[in-house]
Amino acid sequence: MSSLFLALARENPWPGIALAPLNLIVAVSLVGVSLLLGITISVLAWVHALADRAPAPVRHAANRRGFA
């Protein structure tokens, strides 16, 4: 059975040519999903780093002025 299929595939290239656009669509969609996942993870890590930071102490202008 498989030898018959290979013989047909060798003689007729159209099934392989017909599947080429499908392979391209799958490849581009996988690249898009991986880019989206990478961007999502980096944004989440950035937000997490912002949330973990300790707030800077607030200095009042009156405390910074020297005595006149």
Results as ranks from 00 to 15, higher is better:
residue 2 S to I: 14
residue 41 I to G: 07
residue 24 L to S: 05
residue 45 A to H: 01
residue 17 I to R: 09
residue 23 N to W: 06
residue 62 A to Y: 05
residue 34 S to H: 08
residue 22 L to C: 04
residue 27 A to N: 11
residue 11 E to S: 08
residue 26 V to Y: 04
residue 61 A to G: 03
residue 46 W to C: 09
residue 54 A to T: 09
residue 56 A to F: 00
residue 67 F to W: 09
residue 9 A to K: 05
residue 30 L to I: 10
residue 19 L to P: 00
residue 3 S to V: 06
residue 36 L to K: 05
residue 23 N to L: 09
residue 49 A to Q: 07
residue 7 A to W: 04
residue 60 H to Y: 02
residue 9 A to C: 05
residue 61 A to L: 04
residue 19 L to I: 03
residue 16 G to C: 05
residue 29 S to K: 02
residue 38 G to P: 12
residue 6 L to F: 03
residue 55 P to F: 01
residue 63 N to F: 08
residue 2 S to Q: 08
residue 66 G to E: 03
residue 52 D to H: 07
residue 46 W to G: 10
residue 32 G to C: 02
residue 44 L to P: 00
residue 62 A to S: 14
residue 37 L to D: 01
residue 44 L to I: 00
residue 64 R to W: 15
residue 4 L to Y: 12
residue 24 L to E: 08
residue 22 L to V: 07
residue 33 V to D: 10
residue 42 S to R: 02
residue 13 P to H: 00
residue 6 L to P: 01
residue 55 P to A: 13
residue 2 S to N: 03
residue 58 V to A: 12
residue 21 P to N: 02
residue 9 A to I: 01
residue 13 P to N: 05
residue 39 I to N: 09
residue 22 L to R: 04
residue 36 L to T: 09
residue 67 F to G: 06
residue 40 T to K: 15
residue 33 V to Y: 10
residue 9 A to H: 05
residue 23 N to D: 01
residue 62 A to E: 08
residue 62 A to Q: 12
residue 54 A to Q: 14
residue 1 M to Y: 04
residue 17 I to C: 00
residue 40 T to G: 15
residue 20 A to V: 03
residue 1 M to G: 14
residue 48 H to V: 12
residue 24 L to K: 07
residue 48 H to W: 14
residue 27 A to L: 12
residue 59 R to V: 07
residue 2 S to E: 14
residue 50 L to N: 14
residue 52 D to K: 00
residue 44 L to V: 07
residue 14 W to K: 00
residue 67 F to L: 09
residue 20 A to L: 14
residue 38 G to K: 06
residue 54 A to H: 11
residue 63 N to A: 15
residue 28 V to W: 06
